[in-house]
């Protein structure tokens, strides 16, 4: 994000609304920030917003394209074709996602003309029809943009340290998520080993829930299965999961009463310190004690 702050003269917000979800993002890292090679701040940057409805972020953009929901893949495909100089006939492709082809040409020309562009994409890209394939197509779009200029893409991650578990799983197994160890080695297959499909199929017969709240975030069917099996919840707060979890282990909140490392959404590690004492142990201490007991039981 430091690169975006110091260099980006084109910023595209796609399917995200950082004015409301990442409040200091614009002033510190993107459109409003003044950087080494962007001393004029907002005046020196062109800002494009692509979203399905007007938001505070789109109001501050130079160009706002209001698109029909569920067309992320088609938009990325057409932008790729325009960047590659492919012929798209106005009669055959009059509009994409409800936006005239001429507007997409304008975006493609802005990408070609910029010195350094950054695409920030959010849940509007990753959670609409096509999900992971949308991200792949956006990745290919960024690859095609780099034929013309320097261009980067960054996912706007939500929640504190949501990137942390991805980082740890990657350095342990080579995979960021959806890892299965039942064969004694790591297997990766989103969809087969992701939380939601596994719960939908009713496969898990026990669950360890660490620093998350499935009772608030997962669909009712998935929560119903979780409630039917033994669950252990490790969390500093009372939440929608703790009332029905079989065992709840309260822990000290990280960054307040426990030290640790947070990973920012651009994969930068940030060390957080302990500010106050807590009567509870940290997540790390609880998990280490559980592992020790399990190892002891296996040896016995």
């Amino acid at each position: 994000m430091g690169e975006a702050r110091n260099r980006a003269d084109l910023i595209i917000y796609w399917g995200c609304n950082p004015v409301e979800t990442h409040m200091r993002h614009l002033s510190r890292y993107s459109s409003l920030a003044k950087g080494l090679y962007t001393p004029e701040g907002r005046k020196g940057r062109k800002v494009v917003a692509i979203d399905i409805r007007p938001t505070p972020t789109t109001k501050g953009a130079d160009l706002f394209l209001q698109v029909k929901p569920g067309n992320t893949f088609e938009i990325a495909s057409v932008l790729r074709a325009l960047l590659r100089g492919e012929r798209l006939e106005e009669e055959a492709v009059a509009a994409v996602a409800g936006v005239p082809l001429a507007s997409w040409r304008e975006v493609a020309e802005a990408i070609k003309a910029c010195r350094y562009g950054v695409l920030f994409f959010g849940l509007g890209v990753t959670q609409c029809r096509g999900s992971d394939i949308n991200v792949e197509q956006v990745g290919l779009l960024i690859q095609d943009a780099n034929v013309h200029t320097r261009f980067y893409g960054l996912a706007m991650r939500g929640h504190g340290n949501v990137n942390g578990s991805n980082q740890v799983m990657t350095w342990l197994t080579g995979y960021p998520m959806s890892v299965n160890f039942s064969h004694g080695f790591a297997q990766f297959n989103p969809g087969e080993f992701s939380v939601l499909p596994m719960l939908a199929r009713g496969e898990p017969d026990a669950a360890l829930i660490v620093a998350t709240d499935p009772g608030a975030h997962l669909p009712a069917d998935a929560v119903r299965h979780l409630r039917s099996i033994p669950t252990v919840a490790i969390d500093p707060h009372k939440n929608q999961t703790t009332p029905w979890a079989t065992v709840v282990i309260p822990v000290a909140p990280s960054g307040v009463a426990a030290a640790g490392t947070f990973y920012r959404m651009d994969n930068v590690p940030l060390r957080v310190r302990k500010l106050i004492e807590s009567p509870y142990p940290s997540d790390e201490e609880v998990l280490a004690a559980m592992k020790e007991r399990i190892d002891h039981a296996l040896r016995a």
Binding site: E74, S77, V78, R80, A81, L88, A92, V93, V96
Partner: peptide, 12 residues
């Protein structure tokens, strides 16, 4: 059977 849509990146 005719699909819901054909991708804009295909040419007739």
């Amino acid at each position: 059977t005719p699909p819901e849509a054909i991708m804009p990146t295909f040419r007739y």
